[in-house]
Design a protein around this nucleic acid. Structure first.
Lengths: 150, 150
DNA sequence: GCTTGACTCTGACACCATGGCAAGGTTCAC
DNA sequence: GTGAACCTTGCCATGGTGTCAGAGTCAAGC
């Protein structure tokens, strides 16, 4: 299987497959004599695993750990669960931040009459510098942009 | 006021002030004969406006528009409101995605006994490739990382 | 006046995950 | 053998921020 077909069947772009190889997330693919990468069932499986984890918002680092656990026959399921629960907490934190922003903005919007006149409490509030959103956003792992292809 | 002091009083780092100037978000600052940037009340005001908007999760592009409206005496408050409501929708979408991930993961976690044994439905699910999270995450504007300083 | 420390300047590199483009090689069907 | 569709590598871009390096500037103390 060439990289294009692997991409098609796994939903991971060829570009990303190469990238994952480059950063060592997946082992170096086999090559034909002319240098084309080749993929088998096993590789496809791994790629699907990765795509699925990305969809669930895991960072590459976390996915590395998940892959390690996946490949380790002697893993303890508790380790997997802990990793997942930690990620759930991250998501909760992120959601909380966004919701604080959302609520602050929605409230602000209600204070603005929204017509042709120029005076606008929203701008006044922004200019005042006085917060309105309690959240103190973290670096905030960007969610994976899942497959524009599939 | 030098850039350092402007940074301190506005909560925008000196680095970012220079960056905003470089991308044209704020006008070029005045300079001393030796090349130091100087800032006045007006600049401080603008910077606080920007910081506040970032805190509320607006992208730089949106902030550019907000600044334009802010500076335009003849704006219609409806334009501001529309911009804000659009951003609220973006936030809602983002929150929805994250919550879908969160719920899928939380559910998955409940299926895993989480002990010393290796068998783990979480890994099995990831490996199956069969989704579990309906969300199809967008590029996902990273939330601003607000001031480690203040 | 000289030194020292705190500031400033510019520019480059890093993050993270991904896309895009370009210039060239390969494979396969017609 | 030719063209289309694929593959290769490598570089640049995104967004918003930090960090670092090397060099200039300023003010205060001696």
């Amino acid at each position: 299987m060439n990289i294009g077909e692997a991409a098609k069947t796994t939903g991971v772009s060829a570009k990303m497959i190469r990238h994952y190889e480059a950063i060592g997330l997946i082992p170096r693919a086999g090559r034909t004599t002319s240098g084309y990468r080749t993929y088998g069932e096993r590789d496809v499986h791994t790629l699907r695993f990765i795509r699925q984890a990305r969809r669930l918002g895991f960072s590459m680092k976390q996915i590395e750990e998940l892959l390690g656990l996946w490949r380790d026959e002697r893993r303890a399921s508790a380790d997997v669960k802990a990793l997942v629960l930690a990620h759930v907490e991250e998501l909760d934190a992120k959601i909380g931040e966004l919701r604080a922003m959302r609520d602050a903005l929605a409230h602000l919007a209600t204070t603005c009459h929204g017509d042709h006149r120029p005076d606008c409490p929203i701008l006044a509030d922004l200019a005042s510098g006085h917060a309105g959103c309690g959240a103190s956003p973290e670096p905030a792992k960007t969610a994976p942009r899942t497959r524009p292809r599939a």
